[in-house]
């Protein structure tokens, strides 16, 4: 890591490029994945293009109970971004496992199941049910399609129980991760999804890793607000919502780099304003091993597929035959 020259000699057109990535114990065919809540369970996008091209799918968060979510309007557009408050609308973990997971498994794509809850016990119970369902198959493992791990949504600012944003502080975050780890056993990979809306992300990250996380997803949306200058009404029914899109990309880049520096070798899924293959490479360089398209899917449903297709060309331009060689390749300005 970090030994690759800034720019090598370009490789010839058509030279093979290995896009595979190691994300901790997971071997992914490529680094392109989806941000939770921006892809559903993949069915709607698969009606347009084959989602098995992706390195991994991160599904929309599931909770113990059915959630109908928040009132509308749930979304407003902002400069180079958008603010949303959905309220984790989902059919509940049991329904999701019965209908969505079998479909995802049939698509032959690695799946990270995103779990959310109102309490430590909620998180643990949802995780237990997902793990039980996952282990009914051949058991998780490297390069296996189907459930390859859990993403623990520590940082969603939209839950109705406001103030309970676990990811804002190290101890509550660690409590959730420890409970989830205890619920699923030692083997199933767990990624804690953190927020940048906190004083020190590396402190939260360290607590989460110490509590038994396999890796981290960085970052969730940033809490924001819009208001109509004429009517004085907030842009969305919930007043506050998560800001996403290219507007937050610099924050995400900073956080991935900062956590990568503080906790070297931590498997990181990057998320935040990514919309091009160039963005993917930037996030690999600052230390991510998987890179999630979120709001970009809203902007252009084809973007993950198209940008994945552009990665080999960019790698050849950089003289890199293994994309993984770019992970951590940030160089001092001279």
């Amino acid at each position: 890591m970090g030994m690759t020259p800034a720019v090598g000699s370009p490789l010839p057109d058509g030279a093979p490029v290995d896009l595979s990535m190691s994300l901790g114990p997971l071997q992914l065919p490529n680094p392109v994945t989806t941000a939770s809540g921006c892809f559903g369970s993949g069915r709607d996008v698969d009606a347009i293009w084959d989602i098995s091209a992706l390195g991994m799918v991160v599904a929309k968060s599931v909770t113990l109970e059915v959630r109908e979510g928040l009132p509308t309007p749930r979304m407003t557009e902002t400069p180079s971004g958008m603010i949303n408050a959905i309220g984790l609308q989902n059919p509940g973990v049991d329904q999701w496992l019965a209908t969505e997971l079998p479909w995802l498994e049939s698509r032959g794509v690695p799946v990270l199941v995103s779990v959310a809850g109102n309490s430590v016990e909620d998180f643990a119970e949802v995780a237990r049910r997902v793990a039980a369902c996952a282990s009914e198959g051949a058991g998780h493992g490297p390069a296996r399609a189907g459930v390859v791990g859990l993403e623990v949504n520590l940082s969603c600012p939209n839950v109705e129980n406001r103030g309970l944003v676990f990811a804002c502080r190290p101890a509550p975050s660690a409590d959730v991760i420890a409970a989830v780890r205890a619920a699923v056993g030692p083997d199933l990979p767990i990624f804690g999804k953190l927020t940048a809306d906190t004083t020190s992300v590396p402190e939260v990250a360290a607590a989460v890793m110490d509590a038994g996380a396999t890796g981290l997803t960085l970052i969730n949306t940033l809490l924001g607000m819009d208001v109509d200058w004429r009517t004085g009404r907030p842009g969305i029914a919930n007043t506050y919502g998560g800001l996403s899109g290219p507007a937050i990309r610099p924050v995400a880049l900073r956080v991935v780099h900062q956590v990568g520096q503080a906790l070297p070798g931590t498997p990181i899924i990057a998320s935040g304003g990514i919309r091009t293959a160039e963005d993917v490479i930037c996030f690999l360089r600052v230390g991510a091993s998987a890179v999630a398209f979120g709001t970009a899917v809203f902007v252009d449903v084809a973007s993950p597929l198209r940008e994945l297709g552009r990665l080999p060309g960019l790698a050849r331009e950089l003289g890199v035959s293994r994309l993984a060689d770019l992970v951590g390749a940030v160089h001092p300005r001279t």
Binding site: G40, E68, M75, I86, V297, F298
Partner: peptide
Amino acid sequence: EEHMACGGVGVCMTCVLP
């Protein structure tokens, strides 16, 4: 009609109606 983030593909859950 309702505000849509994802252009109507079905993935964003913003345009809901009870």
